[in-house]
């Protein structure tokens, strides 16, 4: 871990590609071989201790990337390093140092009580008994799993099972946790529990977390950094706020006036809606600050209350998906 330019990067991908060969019908008997580029040159580095969200529409190449990072898939080209190892070549060594949760797959023994899978994990990762016990207690407490530890996995609800999946991926205290759609199908309460747990894990143990998701709530709650991939390419890499600034510079100032009045005429803003004494003013934060605007409104009218609305992250991402890299 010395001398390289990615000293603090625990996960690194450079020009990473993966293509699959698919046979397609091209006549009665003839089959054409078609190459599908699932990942077409992705580059990023994840510093130790961060939580990175990896998002993109279905088929964008997210899961394929995660499988290459965890050594399950062999890349077609480019370079990958996780915890200093080349994943596909040193899969087993790497597996001891990372945790993986696939939201739609299970690591647990379907027919056996949850506790049996946890006990097996101790041997699988050769964790000393006392450390395993401490870690297990922590996970059971934080994820509130005590009531169903002895229940066969097949009888658990999805939310309970998913907590089990996350726990078993963490019992060996991995440096990096990969989560592929960890909150898929979960109800609001279960989602909140999972998110709070992951945030605590990152804060307490410094575990690096890479998660793919369609749920932007996961991103807003957890991720300091966001990677957006589409058609196998990275189209955004940065903080959530940068994303808003870059793709949606407009903000909305909502003002409650003392009495209803016609749409205000304020420099640097445009009234987009009037409802009784409430008015919505849209402004470009690159040219106007909210403070200036508030001052101007206060001069023009009797101001009672105000709020600034951030653009909905869902809308922003939906637009990026729709326009693809043309958004640049």
């Amino acid at each position: 871990m010395s001398g390289s330019d990615d000293d603090t990067a625990v996960v690194m991908a450079r020009d990473l590609t993966k293509h699959f060969t698919v046979r397609r019908r091209a006549g009665r008997v003839r089959r054409d071989r078609v190459t599908v580029e699932a990942v077409a040159g992705v580059t990023f580095a994840v510093p130790r201790g961060t939580i990175v969200g990896y998002v993109g529409p279905n088929g964008a190449g997210k899961s394929t990337t995660v499988k290459m990072l965890t050594g399950i898939l062999v890349p077609s080209g480019g370079e990958v390093r996780v915890a200093g190892l080349e994943p596909s070549r040193r899969r087993i060594e790497l597996a001891r140092r990372i945790g993986v949760v696939f939201g739609q797959r299970s690591q647990l023994w379907w027919d056996l009580p949850l506790a049996d899978s946890f006990e097996l994990a101790r041997h699988l990762y050769a964790v000393p008994r006392s450390r395993h016990a401490a870690r297990l207690t922590e996970c059971v407490d934080l994820l509130e799993m005590a009531p169903f530890l002895q229940t066969p996995v097949r009888q658990l609800s999805l939310g309970q099972r998913m907590r089990g999946e996350i726990a078993i991926a963490l019992l060996h205290d991995p440096e990096v946790l990969f989560l592929d759609e960890p909150t898929i199908g979960l109800d609001v309460v279960s989602k909140a529990k999972v998110r709070a747990f992951l945030a605590d894990l990152n804060a307490l143990h410094g575990t690096t977390i890479v998660l793919t998701t369609h749920d932007l709530g996961d991103i807003e709650r957890l991720c300091s950094r966001l990677l957006i991939i589409d058609h196998g390419r990275t189209i955004f890499d940065g903080a959530l706020n940068d994303l808003r600034d870059r793709f949606e510079p407009n903000r909305t100032l909502v003002v409650d006036l003392a009495a209803p009045q016609p749409a205000l005429r304020i420099e640097g803003a445009q009234v987009v809606r009037v409802d009784g004494a409430r008015q919505w003013l849209r402004f470009d934060r690159r040219t106007t600050t909210a403070a200036d605007l508030v001052a101007r409104v206060a001069v023009a009218a009797d101001l009672v209350d105000l709020t600034v609305e951030e653009p909905d992250i869902e809308d922003v991402v939906a637009r990026i998906y729709r326009d693809g890299s043309a958004a640049f």
């Binding site: 499988k67 597996a95 797959r105 299970s106 699988l124």
Partner: peptide, 13 residues
């Protein structure tokens, strides 16, 4: 089903 991916993510053959 693709569950094999979890088998390959374990530190065992």
């Amino acid at each position: 089903t693709g569950d094999i991916a979890t088998d390959f993510s374990r530190p065992i053959t």
